[in-house]
Computed example of a mutant assay.
Amino acid sequence: MTKYRSTYQRISRRELYSPRSVAAITLAILVIFACLWLMIEIVLNLLGQPGLLAAPADMAGAVAGASSAPSVLVGGLGLTGALIGLLLLVVAVTPGRRSRHLLETERTATIVDNEVIASALAREAARVAELAPDNARVTVTPHSATVHLTPTSGTAIDQQAVLTAVREQINAFGLLRSLHAKVVVVSTGRVGG
Rank of each mutant, 00 (worst) to 15 (best):
residue 109 A to Q: 03
residue 131 L to K: 01
residue 80 T to H: 07
residue 174 G to E: 03
residue 9 Q to N: 14
residue 155 T to C: 02
residue 113 D to T: 08
residue 60 A to G: 01
residue 21 S to C: 03
residue 82 A to K: 01
residue 95 P to I: 06
residue 63 V to R: 09
residue 159 Q to Y: 05
residue 154 G to V: 07
residue 149 L to S: 01
residue 34 A to T: 03
residue 173 F to Y: 10
residue 134 D to T: 13
residue 125 A to E: 05
residue 24 A to Q: 11
residue 20 R to C: 03
residue 175 L to E: 03
residue 72 V to M: 11
residue 148 H to D: 08
residue 13 R to S: 12
residue 107 R to K: 14
residue 76 G to C: 01
residue 18 S to C: 05
residue 116 V to S: 10
residue 64 A to P: 02
residue 162 V to S: 02
residue 182 K to S: 15
residue 185 V to K: 04
residue 44 L to N: 09
residue 32 I to F: 14
residue 33 F to R: 06
residue 67 S to H: 14
residue 1 M to F: 13
residue 119 S to R: 07
residue 25 I to C: 06
residue 66 A to F: 05
residue 154 G to R: 05
residue 101 H to D: 02
residue 169 Q to L: 10
residue 155 T to Y: 02
residue 12 S to L: 10
residue 172 A to Q: 05
residue 83 L to E: 07
residue 178 S to T: 15
residue 33 F to Q: 14
residue 151 P to V: 05
residue 43 V to H: 05
residue 193 G to F: 01
residue 147 V to A: 03
residue 56 P to Y: 00
residue 160 Q to T: 13
residue 39 M to D: 09
residue 101 H to V: 04
residue 130 E to L: 07
residue 37 W to I: 09
residue 125 A to C: 08
residue 124 E to H: 08
residue 45 N to G: 12
residue 87 L to N: 08
residue 105 T to S: 15
residue 85 G to F: 11
residue 167 R to K: 05
